[in-house]
Amino acid sequence: MLMNMVGALNNALSQILAENPNAIIMGEDVGKDGGVFRVTDGLQAKFGPGRVMDTPLAESMIIGTAIGMALSGMRPIAEVQFAGFMYMGYDQIVNHAARYRSRTRSAMSVPMIVRTPISGGVRTLEHHSDSPETLYAHIGGLVVLEPSTPYDAKGLLIAAAHGNDPVIFLEPTKLYRLFKQDVPEEMYEVPIGKANLVAQGESLTIVTHGTMVPMVKSVVEKKKVSADIIDLRTISPLDEQAILDSAKKTGRVVIVHEAPLSFGPGAEIAARIAEKAIFELQAPIVRVASGSFPYPFPAYETYYMPNEQRIGKAIDKVLQA
């Protein structure tokens, strides 16, 4: 069935709630309004306000009470309206959700999902376009997922709901309605911890995720270069093997992400390649990322984040080195 990412997520949430009576959806405006991006549209009418619950406007409380529910055998799926507002709940995520398992030696765990829209490119007000995935990926104990397609969105969300770990589920705002894809109607899982090789080639490897995946694909097609394109899908735990296998094969690596350059996901990926495959590289690794400063106001954003031209130049650079 053809679905955009919003539709695929809505479909997955509906199936998760139908499958598990202890699963609930909670967050701001998730009820009648169906969420500000309509991801939960119609679910309250279907499952009732006891299972699709509008909460007071307080991110720490949303995540903190979800932790309590998860500790008690429920499967809360919390929505935080924008990643830029999730910092209010960061303490609950870092100090509690991430470490309940380790600090109790697995006697207790927090199987919850926190969904939030991430990244920009859609001309929003301030604070609505941040890409803070490394803030979560740096915290051991969290699973950090970021789909770039409707198919992966549904499969990863279902895998998260069937897992036993706290999951930060990042949904690129720009990709919510960008394109439709054939998505199976039945439940299926996209495996957590496995990157997706979305294109195969010989000349170089491009490691990317989220909003940058369609952009990278477009550049590769236009330039007619032979490239492996790796869509991480799971930011953490990182699929190091997939990256190393491809880097060793092509010997040339470009990393593209929308998050700021400094200490971004590219730093981790480049370091792992350097540690384990540096002698198989034929060119220095090149990173294409956003500026190392707070996300700008909408008038400036096209100059802030990677665009096709910058990605194209980076590809030329590693191929010519």
Binding site: S60, G64, A66, I67, L71, S72, H96
Partner: peptide, 25 residues
């Protein structure tokens, strides 16, 4: 019971969520 919680007051949302779960379940 639940383990010692060191960061001050962040256990209260858990308690409220655990209480919610008791009624839900």
């Amino acid at each position: 019971g639940y383990p010692v919680i060191i960061p001050v007051s962040s256990q209260l949302p858990h308690a409220a969520g655990i209480a919610f779960a008791q009624r839900y379940m």
